[in-house]
Computed example of a mutant assay.
Amino acid sequence: MRRRTALPALTVALATAAAGTTVVATAGDRPGGPPSERTLLDQVRARGVLRVCTTGDYRPFSHRERETGAYEGIDIDMAENLADSLAVEVDFVPTTWGELLDDLTGGACDLSMGGVSVTLDRAREAYFSVPYLVDGKAPIVRCEDAERYRTLEEIDRPGVRVIVNPGGTNERFVQENIDEATVVPHPDNTTIFDEILAGRADVMITDASETRYQSSLHPELCAVNPDDPFTFAEKAYLLPRGDEEFKEYVDQWLHLALNDGTYAGYEDDWLD
Score class of each variant (00 low, 15 high):
M1K: 13
R2N: 01
R4K: 08
A6E: 10
V12D: 09
A13V: 12
L14Q: 05
A15F: 03
A17E: 07
A17N: 11
T21G: 04
V24N: 09
V24D: 10
T26F: 14
P31T: 01
G33M: 15
P34E: 13
P34F: 09
P35E: 15
L40D: 11
L41C: 06
R47F: 09
R47E: 12
G48M: 09
L50N: 05
V52I: 15
T54F: 09
T54Q: 14
R59N: 01
P60Y: 03
P60H: 02
F61P: 03
G69V: 07
I74T: 04
D77A: 08
A79T: 08
E80L: 06
D84N: 06
V93C: 04
P94M: 09
P94G: 03
G98K: 09
L100D: 03
L100H: 02
L101E: 12
D102C: 00
D103V: 00
D103T: 00
L104H: 04
T105F: 11
T105E: 14
G107I: 12
S112R: 02
S112W: 01
S117L: 08
V118Y: 07
A123F: 07
R124K: 09
Y127I: 12
V130T: 11
V130S: 10
P131D: 10
Y132W: 11
L133M: 10
V134C: 01
D135V: 02
G136M: 08
G136S: 06
A138I: 14
A138V: 12
P139G: 05
P139W: 06
I140W: 01
I140G: 02
I140Q: 02
A146V: 08
E147C: 04
E147Y: 03
E147V: 06
E147R: 09
R150W: 12
E153L: 15
I155E: 01
D156S: 12
R157H: 09
R157K: 13
G159D: 03
V160C: 14
I163R: 10
N170I: 04
E171S: 03
F173I: 07
V174N: 06
Q175E: 15
E176N: 06
N177W: 07
E180K: 11
A181T: 05
A181G: 06
V183E: 00
H186G: 00
P187E: 06
F193Y: 15
D194H: 12
D194P: 06
L197V: 13
L197R: 14
A198P: 00
A198Y: 00
R200F: 07
R200T: 13
R200M: 07
A201G: 12
D202P: 00
V203Q: 00
D207I: 09
A208F: 05
A208I: 13
T211H: 04
T211Y: 03
S215V: 07
S216F: 08
L217M: 15
E220C: 00
C222K: 13
A223T: 11
V224N: 11
E234V: 14
Y237H: 12
P240L: 10
R241Q: 15
G242Q: 03
D243L: 05
E245V: 03
E248C: 00
Y249G: 00
D251T: 15
D251A: 13
Q252N: 14
Q252S: 14
W253F: 15
L254A: 15
H255F: 12
H255E: 15
H255C: 08
L256C: 02
A257N: 02
L258P: 01
D260V: 01
G261I: 01
E267D: 04
L271W: 02
